[in-house]
Simulated assay, not measured.
Amino acid sequence: MLISDFAEKTGLSIDTLRYYDKIDLLVPERRDGNRWYTEQDLKKAEEIDYLKSLHFTLDEIQVILLLDRKLDERMEEGLSKTEVIKEEEKTFQNMKSMLEEKYQEVIAEEEKIKQAKKLLSELKEKLNRLDQ
């Protein structure tokens, strides 16, 4: 599908899609001078959106998607999982550290939400008592 159709389907602006293309985050096929997006690109756009919702930066998302792409390529080349892991060990370690950091951030956010829910619940109860 053309960029305008893809933008409409994903809710992303055309400028955002061009930027993602420019930074190699979401690179569509080129046909007749136009960007053509596939269903695979749609899935990738959803992944990007989801990772952004978890407060991953675009740089971090690039690392994740690049590693995923590398793993697919290596597996297609016939390398075993063990060989791929050996070749990409440093990348895996960096990824593991980044994911652990994000995991801790999500836990902290979860705690903030619990505290906010508790506070709102208490305020609601007080207001309900005033109504009686």
Rank of each mutant, 00 (worst) to 15 (best):
Asn94Trp: 01
Leu127Ala: 11
Gly11Leu: 04
Lys126Cys: 08
Lys52Gln: 07
Lys9Asn: 03
Ile3Cys: 05
Lys118Val: 03
Leu26Ile: 01
Glu111Leu: 14
Ile107Asp: 07
Lys117Pro: 05
Asp5Glu: 14
Phe92Cys: 06
Ile85Gly: 01
Leu99Gly: 13
Glu111Ile: 14
Val106Ala: 07
Leu42Cys: 02
Gln40Ser: 01
Ala116Asp: 11
Leu25Gly: 01
Asp32Ala: 01
Glu47Arg: 10
Ala116Tyr: 13
Thr10Gln: 03
Gln132Thr: 14
Asp49Asn: 08
Arg129Trp: 13
Glu83Gln: 04
Ile107Ser: 07
Lys9Arg: 04
Met75Asp: 11
Asn34Ala: 00
Gln104His: 08
Phe56Met: 14
Ile61Phe: 05
Leu119Ile: 03
Glu73Trp: 15
Ser121Cys: 06
Val27Tyr: 03
Gln104Gly: 01
Arg35Met: 01
Asp59Phe: 12
Leu58Tyr: 13
Glu73Lys: 14
Val63Thr: 15
Asn34Thr: 00
Asn94Val: 03
Leu54Thr: 01
Gln93His: 05
Arg74Gly: 13
Tyr103Leu: 12
Thr38Arg: 00
Glu76Cys: 06
Ile64Pro: 13
Leu120Asp: 11
Tyr37Met: 03
Glu39Thr: 07
Ser53Gln: 11
Phe92Gly: 00
Lys117His: 09
Ala108Cys: 10
Ile61Met: 06
Leu25Asp: 01
Ser53Cys: 09
Arg69Ala: 15
Lys102Ile: 02
Leu42Arg: 02
Glu73Met: 15
Ser13Thr: 10
